Simulated scan of single mutants.
Amino acid sequence: MKSNSPRYFIKKWGNPSKDIPPLVCLHGFTGSSKTFESLFDNRQLDFQVIAIDLIGHGQTSVVVDKMYYTFENMCDEVILELKKIGVVYFSLFGYSMGARLALGIASKYPDHISHLILESGSPGLKTTQEQESRRASDEKLALKIEEEGVASFVDFWENIALFDSQKSLPKKSQEKIRQERLSQQVFGLANSLRFMGTGSQPSFWPKLKEMTLESITLIVGELDSKFITIALEMKRENSKFQFITIKEAGHCVHLEKPDEVYQVINSIMKGGAI
């Protein structure tokens, strides 16, 4: 390992099972492994859960080399980090940015993955023009982080329409989410936007038809109309995809309805009906 390479923080719940491969969890932008505490803390788990703080987030070290922040590199890094702890076959659950990354990993390393669970995920943008426009938009946000700092950006970010439904959460839960966002670092967040944003990732739309994993599940909140539309279009591309809508939830379903999302995950992991 190079001396300047990131040191990834990994959080675990439960214990390894000889019958059920572990579940690897990938968080969203401005998040970390902490976001999954509401899902797995105080649960009687029959399998192991492994959450990784992705580059630019949480307790994973912030490095200068921007190569480490690219979408393609992060796909490889997740596989390498899991191999270091003896995990080569697993189910994969990703939320938002983490769902996009999970889809990338599943496309590149299908033999490593049993079940794929995407919460509020997207295969990316379809055209070069859309990608260029999104990269320009993400660059503006990255500059905002660098010029105004994390706190100012979080004030802006938590008030975008995508997260409106989170305002109905208990104040304690809202404050926990805010503190997780505030704990991020300027350089890490800005470069995550630049190199792992939706405009910078490859488009996986053409690959959806080719995916033949044991199961692929799309979880979306019923209040998140944008991602319901995306999920339905993904299912049209590949009828193997299962589509689940969680009532009274927006974009971050696992924070707004943790029990319901856990029930879905637990059923998938144990091979039961959803």
Rank of each mutant, 00 (worst) to 15 (best):
A161Q: 05
A161L: 11
A161W: 07
L162I: 05
L162K: 02
L162C: 01
L162T: 02
L162E: 02
F163E: 00
F163L: 04
F163R: 00
F163N: 01
F163C: 03
F163I: 00
D164C: 10
D164K: 13
D164M: 09
D164N: 13
S165Y: 14
S165F: 12
S165L: 13
S165D: 14
S165T: 10
S165E: 14
S165H: 14
Q166T: 06
Q166S: 08
Q166W: 10
Q166E: 05
Q166K: 04
K167G: 02
K167R: 12
K167Y: 08
K167F: 14
K167V: 03
S168D: 05
S168V: 08
S168E: 04
S168G: 09
S168Y: 10
P170W: 04
P170L: 02
P170F: 07
P170D: 02
K171Y: 06
K171T: 03
K171F: 12
K172Y: 14
K172N: 12
K172T: 11
S173Y: 06
S173K: 10
S173E: 13
Q174H: 07
Q174K: 07
Q174Y: 07
E175T: 06
E175R: 11
E175Y: 13
E175V: 06
E175N: 14
E175C: 10
E175S: 12
E175M: 13
K176H: 03
K176A: 15
K176R: 08
K176G: 05
I177A: 09
I177K: 08
I177Q: 04
I177C: 09
R178E: 01
Q179S: 03
Q179E: 06
Q179N: 07
Q179P: 02
Q179L: 06
E180V: 10
E180G: 07
E180C: 13
E180M: 14
E180Y: 04
E180W: 07
R181S: 04
R181H: 06
R181T: 00
R181V: 02
L182S: 03
L182F: 09
L182H: 02
L182T: 00
L182W: 06
S183F: 01
S183N: 00
S183D: 00
S183Y: 01
S183P: 03
Q184R: 07
Q185P: 11
Q185A: 15
Q185T: 05
Q185K: 15
Q185G: 14
V186A: 10
V186P: 09
V186Q: 09
V186K: 14
V186T: 14
F187C: 12
F187P: 06
F187A: 14
G188A: 05
G188Y: 08
L189S: 05
L189H: 03
L189V: 05
L189A: 03
L189C: 06
L189P: 03
A190C: 12
A190E: 06
A190I: 04
A190W: 10
N191E: 08
N191T: 08
N191R: 12
N191Q: 10
N191K: 11
N191F: 15
S192G: 13
S192D: 05
S192E: 08
S192T: 15
L193A: 10
L193R: 08
L193D: 02
L193E: 04
L193S: 11
L193G: 09
